[in-house]
Amino acid sequence: MRPGRTRPCSDLSLAVLMAALALAGCGNRQSALLPRSEHAGEVFHLTLVMTLAGALILALVTVLAGLGLLGGSGVRRRLAGRPLLVGGGIVFPVVALTLLLIWEIAILARLDPPADDATLRVEVIGHQYWWEIRYLGPAGAHVTTANEVVLPAGGKVELALRTADVLHSFWIPSLGGKMDLIPGRTNRLTLTTGDPVVLRGQCAEFCGEQHALMAFDVEVLPPAGFAAWLERQRSPAAAPATPLLAEGRDAFLASGCGACHTVRGTPAVGRLGPDLTHVGGRRTIAAGSFPTNVGTLAGWIADAQHLKRGNRMPSFGNLDGRTLRAIATWLGSLE
């Protein structure tokens, strides 16, 4: 900070930038202030310019108001004069806002382009309170997963957004804006990705008791890594390799879990809850609520209603200790 500066802008912009960075530190996987794609970057740029311009205009108006109240009679006469009134009160706002509007419309047009050249099509179906994600392949061969969105780096993906029940909203702050999931309608959202990174998204439209615990993991992988991941997701669950895992799978089926959940490669074909074919490989369970490990899987099965009251899965506190561990171990092995 050199003394004797005459421009307040640099000081203000530095302050705003530092504030933005400080806020970004609060959620570096899920922050609109830390853009990870070209589109998110443009929105962030616009935000910064509008904030700075707004702050500048506020400062200017405050100074003029101060002069009007406290200045000498000569100053006040000039302030009340027609040139300042017309120039500052009509011409300046009209010009500034028109320029801003043109710039915003240009950005909006770029943010939602036609997605004919999208390299990937993903269907997102919102449920209370989890995300069904379907990767659409050729000839209807789609891959179903839940609560995680994995995307190839440097690509363009078109998302078709639907809901199975109430209003939800799909939001990955670091990649782009929100798009609502509206009953009876399919909304489309186009996202572009930058470099490989791990991010997070969440539901952005109040959808019920556990709206706050309806998040999902986002991972942007290098193209080869993404293709490998998709192939792995396409495959059915691996056969149990140990007696304990077989015990877990059998207990899963005997306990009726297949009435709500699908595990491809087993008789479990339920569609009421998330697909669990590869649940062990996900970073989190219960829609972004807890890290995935045998302990959290067991705890969730035993007491889902205490952890996320009102979610559609009952607590299975009736299982004996050994059975609970077996089921959780088997699910944790499904990577």
């Binding site: 807890f290 890290p291 490990n293 302990g295 959290t296 067991a298 705890g299 969730w300 035993a302 007491d303 205490h306 952890l307 506190g317």
Partner: peptide, 20 residues
Amino acid sequence: SYACGVCHVVPGVAGAHGTV
């Protein structure tokens, strides 16, 4: 990080109020 709080109440750990 292991989220032991999913099953246990653990003083000093945010969000750890499990009753399993």
